[in-house]
Design a protein around this nucleic acid. Structure first.
Length: 126
RNA sequence: GCGGAUGGCCGGACGGCCGCGGGCGGGUUACUGCCCGAGGAAAGUCCGGGCUCCACAGGGCACGGUGCCGGGUAACGCCCGGCGGGGGCAACCCCAGGGAAAGCGCCACAGAGAACAGACCGCCCGGAUCCGUCCGGGCAAGGGUGAAACGGUGGGGUAAAGGCCCACCGCGGGACGGGCAACCGGACCGGCACGGCAAGCCCCACCGGGAGCAAUGCCAAAUAGGGGCCUCGCGCCGCUGCCCUUCGGGGUCGGCAGGCACGCCCGAACCCGAGAGGCCCGGGUUGGCAGCACGACCCUUCCGGUAACGGCGGGGCCAGACGAAUGGUCGUCGAACCGGGGCCUGGCACCCCCCGGCGAACAGAACCCGGCUUACAGGCCAUCCGCAGCC
């Protein structure tokens, strides 16, 4: 990916702390067919770059179903966020039961691009 | 060929592009090379162990578990072999399988009667009679109830019957023989006495400290390395409860049973000791490393053993994450399934072949092992048993 568009790509970090997930949940959200996106613009001095986390609760299914949903969300984020994500933002992708594992990959990619646009626009208009 | 029984194995394949975790390297950085990377159940957390910390003076009762015999094992509630009972034509499978003459309790409904048996319908004898039956006595064979009715079948005998007597079977005892044992066989004796449930309590034998890798240890960081007040305190602690004796020091009084070196051993009461809990104030960390991947490990020649398994030798290194890697995506091929056709035939089914559709079960390591249990689309192999398609 970096080989095809080295100018636009930005590194993406990973969310690890529970507190970061909770803060993102309180900020903006964008429901989509395949998943739910939560996003937050961090305060100054918190961390650098784009960060992303994934959540699949037991509502999604057993361990196999949860892992599969997370892996597909990770794959989608890796294709989209380096270009469409904003530095200084935290994103959290939340899996949905059934849909996240079955929806075609291309549709998920489109969903994420739409969701990011909505979240960013909402922030800009505020 | 079809239907079964047992044991074992597999449980999508290949490729392109893009990635993730760990290890070993190269490079000043950017980056980059090689190797390894989920399961038979990783699951349920139901047993058993290793490991770590805590507790521990001994004993008894309670409590929990196991329950034919012998062996295997670190151990087990597991496995192997055998015994007994039950099922199946068979291969083979199943069993919570110690004790019911230690004691208590229960045995619904039905039925006359359900555990110190009993008499509803009946059978027999005698008497009475208004000829319908009634009274007294004997019997438990036949009928009926029930999960179960106090031995069964046949014969003798009898007023009618009954182990009343006899034969066989069952049951109880049992010399003796076989087996390490569970147990098996059984001369002979007994004339029938002994119902079921122990998965209701119980009895017997054996086993059992508690908590868990968020254990535990080390390092780092921090204005802190804590401070203040109160309560209880003789038994405290521990493991779920209880009981008995029991700690160290001091020690008055007492005791002479015993011993001697004649004040020591012994020792009730009493005193002291270690501590526990609660509240308030103030502050720090929510990091890193070890544990944590060489082990009751895996494969295997040979040897011992019926087997589980054990032994000698050879070879191998096989996930180590912590918001948690082991993949995402796109092709090609594809098991099974569904539909259609062909082949065979009098017809149908199976098998086989062709075309189209669909497109892979249960499920994701979290300290590690040995088991059990549960889930699983389907496929393959070996050995064994039964039957030889149907109309």
């Amino acid at each position: 990916m970096s080989a095809t568009a080295p100018d636009n790509a930005r590194p993406v970090g990973t969310l690890l702390k529970r507190a970061d997930f909770l803060r993102a949940a309180r900020a903006g959200r964008a429901p989509m067919p395949g998943f739910l996106l939560q996003a937050r613009e961090r305060a100054a001095g918190e961390a650098e770059g784009i960060r992303v986390g994934f959540t699949c609760s037991k509502k999604v299914g057993n361990a196999v179903a949860r892992n599969r949903a997370k892996r597909r969300l990770r794959a989608v984020a890796r294709e989209v966020l380096p270009f469409a994500g904003c530095p200084g933002w935290d994103y959290v992708l939340i899996g949905r039961a059934g849909v996240t594992a079955e929806r075609p990959h291309a549709a998920l990619v489109a969903d994420l691009e739409d969701a990011l646009a909505r979240v960013h626009r909402k922030r800009g208009s505020r």
